[in-house]
């Protein structure tokens, strides 16, 4: 059965090559043993959950929330990705993943875990005229800026 085995090998090889390349394109690969990332503090007093808890479980919270919001239309804000971005966007870049020191990118490159969020999700909080912050949506509607601000602090996407 070498024929099949070699076939299998080729397939595996192709898969491996694919997987390797996909991880390789992740920006800012951490070098082993490098210093722990310095994270900028978020805007608020306290994260929505205990910091230690968030370190371990943020991905589960986000995934759970994403499915609820996306598929059921549940739009609580406590564990929304937009909430994370609003709070943790860097003061320098205004983003959570634009530079390697930004909140999400810093840790994820250190841990060498590829992030799939930012292909689609905005890494920056919504730009909105400061005077309109918090205005109920329909009122801000002028046609040039149709994006009514979500209730401040964010409903989810």
């Amino acid at each position: 059965m070498n024929g099949m085995a070699s076939l299998g090998k080729w397939l595996k090889l192709a898969l491996l090559a694919g997987a390797a390349a996909l991880t390789a394109v992740a920006p800012h690969q951490a070098t082993a043993g490098s210093a722990k990332p310095m994270l900028e503090r978020g805007k608020g007093e306290q994260c929505v959950e205990d910091t230690q808890f968030m370190r371990r479980n943020h991905m589960d919270l986000l995934k759970h929330h994403r499915n609820e919001t996306m598929r059921q239309g549940i739009r609580t804000t406590k564990h929304s990705l937009k909430g994370c971005v609003d709070c943790h966007a860097s003061t320098k870049t205004g983003s959570v993943a634009a530079s390697k020191d930004d909140f999400c990118a810093a840790c994820h490159s250190y841990a060498a875990v590829k992030l799939d969020c930012w292909d689609c999700h905005a890494t920056k909080p919504k730009k909105r005229p400061a005077t309109l912050a918090g205005m109920p949506p329909a009122a801000s509607e002028t046609g040039t800026s149709p994006m009514a601000p979500a209730l401040a602090g964010g409903k989810t996407q």
């Binding site: 059965m1 070498n2 024929g3 099949m4 070699s6 076939l7 080729w10 192709a14």
Partner: peptide
Amino acid sequence: AIAFMATIIAVHALKF
């Protein structure tokens, strides 16, 4: 090419 190579290898290595 994948089908071709798999065939070449199989035919080379086994009794096909």
